[in-house]
Each structure stands twice: as structure tokens, then as C-alpha cells.
Design a protein around this nucleic acid. Structure first.
Length: 255
DNA sequence: ATGGTCGAGCATCGA
């Protein structure tokens, strides 16, 4: 079982990259964020041609999440209780014996802004949702663009990012609070190269200089942590023409 | 201190 996450920054623009990557990597599940398209526009047929079923929760211009799966995804949830939110950032589905929660966590703008308050409130509500999901589904995967670099080693220049958005202490505490539910950061279960990142700003040749942050994550419940064989970042798609600013993250599981 | 690049959709916002 191979499960991946990728913020594609417009599925319309990135569909060729996504189809190529699915063809090479053949994950069982790909969670996508920032589709930036409405549901009627979703490229169901092209993905079906590639062997993937689509579940999606889209909106015009902003946000939008989807799960692409070889097997039929069931029991979708896009609007958990207490989330009165028109922004399409959440899509939970069940694939085989795994519950998969795909998240596009708010960016947060600047620390102290209204968007920042929205982000922290959103994360607090999400923690409650995930506690309930864990009660119902012992095999739980929570993945996506968290817009949080959990530790200084996940940041190319921790001092310049100190208490900035994506790195502030309240954001890191909110991330830690998700782990405290009984989730594990799959990437950190394995030896990894230093300076491993999933996002690089389009500006200033940031990717070429590896000025990145690790903000895309795959969190797994204890039974899945036991079964996790590998977790890696695939930087290859970030090298292509017209790339997303994010790289995919892939986790592999026994059976 | 500011902007730098993308994607959306047509001036500027969000990231």
C-alpha cells in the first residue's frame, strides 16, 4: 500500500505532471490540495483513464482538495461537525481498511492577522475531528499541506523564520497537539537526508538553492506506524517546467 | 524594509 500527498497549485495547470507521476509511481492513493477548480470541472475522465477514481471537494479559484485512488473510496466527509466553513480544505474517505483524511491547512497570512487566527482556530477544531476519527478508525492516515514546519530542522534558515508564519510557536504547538492524539510523522520514523523540504518559494531561485520548508506531512496512527516501511519526498516533479511549488511525499506500508 | 514568482482571471489577491 503506497499513499502520497501533493499540493499541485492548480490541477488544471498540473494535470500533465500528475498523470505522468501517477504513471511512474503508481501510488494506491494520492491526496491532492489546491486543485483551484469547481467540482464540474474536475478531470474525472483523464484520471479514470490512468486507473484512478476521483473524490473531490472543489471551489472556484482557491483551495480545493481531492483523493485519487485505485480502489473505490467510500464514506466521504467534506464538512465535519462544527466546521461551518465554505472553504474546501477537508476530504476524508475510506480506502480498503484505511481511513484517509486529506487536509489543506490554512496558510495563515502573517502572524497575528485575522487569517492567522482562522488557521489556529481551524487546527483546534480539526484536532477534535481527528480524535473522533481515531475512535472509529484505528488505521488512520492524516496527510496534506499542513502549512507548518514542525521543527527548526524543517526550515532552511530557522533564524530568519523565527516566529514567522509556518514556523511560529502556536502553529508548532497545534501540530504537536495533533501528534499527541496518537499520530506519528511518518517521515521522521526513518533516516532522512538533512535539509529535506517539500515546498520552495517560486521566487529567488529558491528550489535551485534548496531554500525550502517541510510543510507537507503524512501522519499515521499507531497500527499504521508499525506497518510503515518507508517515507520519502520526491523532488523530481519540482525540477520540471511549470512545476508546483510543492513536492509529493510518499509513504509505503506493509500489505 | 521591500520585492522577488506563480495561478486565478483581468486588477489584484492569495500563497
Amino acid at each position: 500500500m503506497k499513499i502520497a500527498t501533493w499540493n499541485v497549485n492548480s490541477l488544471r495547470v498540473r494535470l500533465p505532471h500528475v498523470l505522468n507521476w501517477l504513471g511512474q509511481e503508481r501510488p494506491d492513493v494520492l491526496a491532492v490540495q489546491e486543485t483551484k477548480m469547481t467540482d464540474p470541472e474536475f478531470p474525472v475522465a483523464e484520471l479514470a483513464e490512468a486507473g484512478y477514481r476521483s473524490v473531490y471537494s472543489g471551489q472556484k479559484t482557491y483551495n480545493g482538495v481531492a483523493v485519487l485512488s485505485k480502489l473505490d473510496p467510500c464514506d466521504p466527509i467534506t464538512d465535519p461537525a462544527d466546521f461551518d466553513d465554505p472553504q474546501r480544505r477537508i476530504l476524508a474517505v475510506t480506502v480498503a481498511d484505511c481511513r484517509i483524511v486529506n487536509l489543506y491547512v490554512p496558510n495563515g497570512g502573517e502572524v497575528g492577522s485575522d487569517k492567522y487566527a482562522y488557521k489556529l482556530n481551524w487546527l483546534a477544531k480539526m484536532r477534535n475531528c481527528l480524535r473522533l476519527e481515531l475512535e472509529r478508525h484505528p488505521r488512520l492516515v492524516v496527510l496534506g499541506d499542513f502549512n507548518i514546519a514542525p521543527e527548526d530542522r524543517d526550515v532552511y534558515d530557522p533564524e530568519s523564520w523565527r516566529e514567522k508564519i509556518l514556523c511560529s510557536t502556536p502553529e508548532r504547538e497545534a501540530f504537536r497537539a495533533l501528534l499527541d492524539l496518537g499520530l506519528t510523522d511518518a517521515f521522521r520514523r526513518f533516516d532522512q537526508a538533512e535539509k529535506s523540504y517539500t515546498w520552495w518559494d517560486y521566487r529567488l531561485n529558491a528550489f535551485r538553492r534548496n531554500l525550502g520548508l517541510r510543510i507537507d506531512h503524512i501522519l499515521v496512527s499507531a497500527p499504521l506506524a508499525e506497518d510503515c516501511l518507508a517515507c520519502r519526498i520526491d523532488v523530481e516533479p519540482r525540477k520540471l517546467e511549470r512545476p508546483s511549488d510543492h513536492a509529493p511525499v510518499v509513504a509505503e506500508f506493509r500489505a
